[in-house]
């Protein structure tokens, strides 16, 4: 024992325990501002011209659909038979439909409905799915087993049938469409979220949090959720245009919103009846839908690239080139 002590005394001399001078310490200081993950993502996103363009388009659409129906001299259901089927002119910027309603007001009122269905219809299933998937993944055991079997069977049923049953039951309208999207969409979201929870559940940082006595809710929301936020956001930017698309398709075949309420899909459906003589009545609402879908789609792609730290130092053009 004393032999070891002697040896240590020889290796470590007294000088080794003297504090170093302050000037030497400054080598380790971080002089530049710290860039966190989210500001970095934002910075990279803003460098991508396509993403900025899409963001501007989305914001413009939202603003127009909120404010045009408020400030327009026409209302979306005000008819004027003397002015039916007027082509776009200085008074009715997008023309009028067959009963003389101002299409400019109607298009933006319709995109208000479509965007609303798109946002709520995409976010609601995600929230339900996160809750159910979180419970399933976190608690495991028979709860997990039960929930996953229900989802397995539920996913086997063709989505169209959920739609039909709900629309038959509650009638067409924004509310029942959102409900249908929620009932259809939560299962996939829950499955994905459960997988993510399982993936992070037993990682070291969660073990540490549990050891310190954190509650399950705290661990799920404070420790697991931040790790999968990126994934969720990208999923949402894909779910919103999908919901708008579905709404448009259903309204087109006559299962969507009912008159006098309108949506972009409904307007296109009305326009498609007369597009051989008045093409603008179909192509204007159609272009607005396409522009919304395109913007969400491209923005989602850019966001996915920006969230991927492996691509962080490449310029936007290079990233697009390498994108899979």
């Amino acid at each position: 024992m004393s032999d070891i002590n002697n040896r240590i005394r020889n290796i470590l001399t007294k000088e080794d325990f003297e504090p170093i001078k302050k000037a030497e310490l400054e080598g380790d200081l971080i002089v530049r501002p710290v860039v966190n993950y989210w500001p970095d993502v934002l910075r990279r996103l803003m460098k991508d011209r396509m993403a900025v363009f899409c963001l501007v388009v989305i914001l413009a659409m939202i603003l127009l659909s909120v404010f045009v129906p408020i400030f327009s001299p026409y209302s979306f259901d005000q008819t004027d038979l003397l002015k039916s089927n007027h082509s776009p002119n200085s008074q009715n910027w997008f023309g009028t439909d067959r009963v003389g309603r101002d299409l400019f007001t109607r298009v933006w009122y319709g995109s208000r409905v479509s965007l609303g269905i798109g946002f709520v219809g995409a976010i609601l299933p995600y929230l339900i799915g996160m809750l159910v998937g979180g419970v399933s993944g976190w608690f495991g055991g028979w709860i997990d087993m039960l929930i996953m079997r229900i989802i397995d069977i539920g996913l086997c049923i063709p989505p169209m049938i959920y739609f039909i049953l709900i629309i038959v039951y509650f009638g067409g309208g924004p509310f029942s469409m959102i409900l249908a999207f929620a009932i259809m969409g939560w299962m996939g979201a829950a499955r994905g979220f459960r997988g993510r929870v399982l993936q992070f559940k037993n990682r070291e940082f969660n073990l540490a949090a549990r050891t310190l006595g954190a509650s399950p809710m705290r661990i799920v929301f404070k420790h697991i959720l931040p790790n999968i936020t990126g994934n969720l956001v990208v999923g949402l930017t894909a779910a919103i245009p999908a919901a708008i698309f579905m709404e448009a398709g259903l309204s087109y075949i006559g299962l969507g919103v009912e008159p006098p309420l309108t949506s972009l899909g409904k307007l296109s459906a009305d326009g498609s009846l007369v597009f051989r003589t008045y093409p603008y009545q179909l192509f204007i609402p159609g272009t607005v839908i396409s522009l919304i879908i395109f913007s969400f789609f491209m923005f989602g792609n850019a966001l996915r690239d920006a969230l991927d730290p492996r691509l962080r130092d490449l310029p936007a053009k290079e990233r697009r080139r390498l994108r899979k």
Binding site: G249, Y252, P279, L282, S290, F294
Partner: peptide
Amino acid sequence: ILVISLPAFLIAAILQY
């Protein structure tokens, strides 16, 4: 990407037109 952003009925209408 352009085709994916077009709703089915618009594609149909454009082709018809």
